[in-house]
Structures are given as C-alpha cells and as structure tokens.
C-alpha cells in the first residue's frame, strides 16, 4: 500500500489583533492512494482548516504535510497554484460556481488556467458533464440548476485537470437527503472506479461511516478518534 498523504504535527494559528487563535494543534494522519477518508466533528473543530491546508488554499503555521511526496509546507505561492491546478479538485457546500458562466464554462475553467486549447477544453468539459449525468444542461447558468445539479457541475469541474485527490467540504450540506444520497453515491463511484483519493469533511456521521474506509473525528483542533469501517481492497 502506497502512502499518498502524510501529515505530521500540523498547527494553524490565526492572528486576530494581539491574541492568536489556535485552529489546529499538531494534527497528524496519513492516507493511502485510493482511500476514501472522512473527517467529522463539530463546527469550529478545525476540520475545514485542515482541508484548506490539504488543498493548498491555506498554509500551516507549523508541521509537515506531504501529498504524493511533495512537501506543501515549503511550496511558494505559484507552486501552490500549480498544485491546486494539477493535483487536487475541490468541491464545497455552497458549490462555488461562477454565476455568469454556463455549466460548460465552469467545468472548462481549470483547463483554461492549464492552457488547454479551446476545442480540447470544450470536448473534455462535455465528457465530464456526461459523466456526472448533466449532458443536457451544459448551457445552463448555475442559477438555472438545482442544488444537486450544481454540485454535479462542481464535481465535474473538480475532475477537469485529472487530479489524484478530491477534497470535499460538506458536499451535501445544502442538499435534501435524497439528492445528498445521489451525490455521495457519485463520489463513491469515482473513488471506486477511478482510484481517486477522497478526503471529505462532513457533519453526517452516518453516511460517513457508510461510505468511508476510515473516519477521523476532530475536536478543538485535534484528532481524537480514528475508526476503520472497511478495508482497502
């Protein structure tokens, strides 16, 4: 088994005025390639901060974090941008689609930053929308899509540059239970069929236990519990 993520002693301190607030107190964990890992915990437990650091959107104050043998802690800002562009795809609770762009253009956006040609972008974006089951909705704006559809577009966008890691921050938080189930099924399918490593932050302990190989429980910036539900194949 290949260790894909190796984090050790990650601290994150936010400075607000004179006093600092510690969001993470030395978090250590690892994940294997192809693993579906869930992080559960109350709001303010630091799980979203950990996900942002893992996604290269935020940086740790201390500690080391390796993804595919690359040390994120020593990366410069432009290297982090490249890491976000090629290594990870992220989805969010509030979808974070660009409202003025069609579904197709939203999916094509990461490929624009990767300097792909227009025809290549369009073709791949269509393929990805078909993969998530939205082939008929490519010219719709985000405001014309339902929550489930919007999250599917976001998943298609996250896959645009063929990342090996998918980070999901409360992906079902804004969806009804039926739609949430569909989205989680899609994630499970991607994990199984594409060997995509997934780290998901969620409130939903039940479905986390259903889907994940492992669940980490966080409290006050620390990992307090680790549970394995199914073995990696």
């Amino acid at each position: 088994m290949q260790t894909f993520i190796q984090a050790s002693g990650i601290c994150k301190e936010y400075h607000k005025g004179q006093s600092g607030v510690m969001a993470l107190h030395g978090v250590s964990f690892s994940a294997q390639a192809g693993e579906f890992l869930s992080i559960v915990g109350r709001s303010g437990s630091g799980k979203s901060t950990l996900l942002n650091i893992l996604g290269g959107l935020d940086t740790a104050s201390a500690g080391k974090i390796y993804v595919d043998s690359q040390d994120l802690a020593v990366m410069r800002r432009y290297q982090l941008a490249l890491y976000r562009r090629t290594m990870v795809g992220m989805i969010f609770q509030s979808f974070n689609l660009i409202p003025s762009c069609s579904a197709l253009d939203n999916v094509a956006l990461p490929m624009t930053f990767a300097a792909r040609s227009k025809s290549e972008r369009t073709q791949r974006a269509k393929d990805l929308l078909a993969l998530v089951g939205l082939a008929q909705r490519e010219h719709h704006k985000p405001s014309e899509l339902s929550g489930g559809e919007a999250q599917r577009v976001a998943i298609a966008r996250a896959l645009a540059n063929q990342p090996r890691l998918l980070l999901a921050d409360e992906p079902t938080g804004n969806l009804d239970s039926h739609t949430a189930g569909e989205i989680l099924e899609l994630l499970l399918k991607l994990n199984a069929e594409r060997n995509l490593t997934i780290v998901m932050v969620t409130h939903d302990v039940v479905s986390a236990a259903d889907l994940s190989h492992r669940v980490l429980r966080m409290l006050d910036g620390r990992i307090v519990e680790e549970e394995e539900f199914r073995r990696m194949a």
Binding site: G55, R77, M90, A114
Partner: peptide, 10 residues
C-alpha cells in the same frame, strides 16, 4: 477565490 481554488495563479 474560485479562480484561485481551481488553480489560477497570482
């Protein structure tokens, strides 16, 4: 923020 999250550099 979205552009940065999907890989846009500064």
């Amino acid at each position: 923020g979205i552009m940065k999250a999907v890989g846009g550099s500064e």
